[in-house]
Amino acid sequence: MNRTLYTLSLVLFTLFLCSCEGNTDYVHTIHNFHNERITVIHQYIVGGDALDQRSIEINPGDHKEVIYHSQLGGRSEPGPLFTYEDYLTVINAQGDTMTKDIYDDQYWEVYSTHEHKVPSAWRHDFHFSVKSNDFE
């Protein structure tokens, strides 16, 4: 009887640990080092095929999260810079579009944090800086 109870407890505990799926968060933040307010236009796919958009204003010296995605499974590697259907455009107060390529990995700083071990949870922060000379 004790052996059966022990075996059952061990099986249930193993199933519990296996069912604890981790999580990975991807956060894209834009820092405004420009001398005036900038606007980030974030276009994204909704419902599989519809394109929606939102505008995010960032004052000089401030920063804001512009994209946040979360997925199941703790992943230690940040992976590609953009993993979803997200399109970003940065414009200044005069309506000039930023000339620096926002999709070029070299302009993004990546910080990865292992937030929990069991279940494994990771956060990957992508930081992009906008400066005055990034506009025509």
Rank of each mutant, 00 (worst) to 15 (best):
T113G: 14
T29K: 08
D101Y: 06
V46A: 14
R54C: 06
T83V: 13
Y111I: 15
D105S: 07
L81V: 07
Q43M: 07
S19F: 06
M98V: 08
L10C: 13
D62V: 02
N23P: 02
D62W: 03
I38Y: 02
G73R: 10
W108I: 00
L88P: 03
D62Q: 05
V11F: 12
S55H: 13
E85I: 05
D104F: 15
T99D: 13
I56L: 00
D134N: 14
T7S: 09
Q43F: 01
D101P: 05
A121P: 01
L51Y: 04
F135L: 07
A50E: 03
F33N: 13
Q53N: 13
W108S: 01
V27Y: 00
I67D: 00
K64R: 08
N92E: 03
S129R: 11
T24A: 11
W108A: 00
Q71K: 08
E115D: 12
G74N: 08
F128R: 04
I102K: 00
S132D: 15
H63W: 02
D62K: 04
P78D: 07
L81I: 05
S76Y: 12
V11D: 07
S70T: 10
E77P: 04
D101L: 11
E109G: 12
P60T: 01
Y44M: 00
S19A: 08
Y87N: 11
E57R: 05
E85T: 01
T113K: 15
F135I: 09
V11W: 10
R75D: 13
L51M: 04
I38M: 05
M1W: 10
R75E: 12
V27S: 03
I38Q: 03
I30A: 07
S70D: 12
H127R: 12
V130N: 01
T97A: 12
L12G: 10
F33A: 07
D49A: 03
V130M: 06
I41R: 06
S76A: 14
E85V: 07
S19Q: 11
F126H: 06
V66S: 01
T113N: 15
N35D: 15
I38S: 05
K117H: 15
Y103N: 15
N92C: 06
E21A: 14
V130L: 04
M1F: 13
Y84R: 09
H34L: 06
F135E: 09
H63G: 09
H127K: 11
D62H: 04
T29M: 06
N59P: 00
R75G: 14
D101H: 00
E57P: 00
H31T: 02
Y111A: 14
Y111S: 14
N35I: 06
V27T: 05
D134Y: 07
A50Y: 10
E36F: 12
H42E: 09
I67L: 02
T7Q: 12
C18H: 07
N133L: 15
F126T: 02
K131D: 15
L88Y: 01
R3Y: 09
D125C: 04
N133S: 13
N133F: 13
V40Y: 03
V118I: 12
Y103P: 15
A50G: 03
Q53K: 04
E57N: 04
A50K: 08
G61L: 04
G79R: 06
Y84L: 12
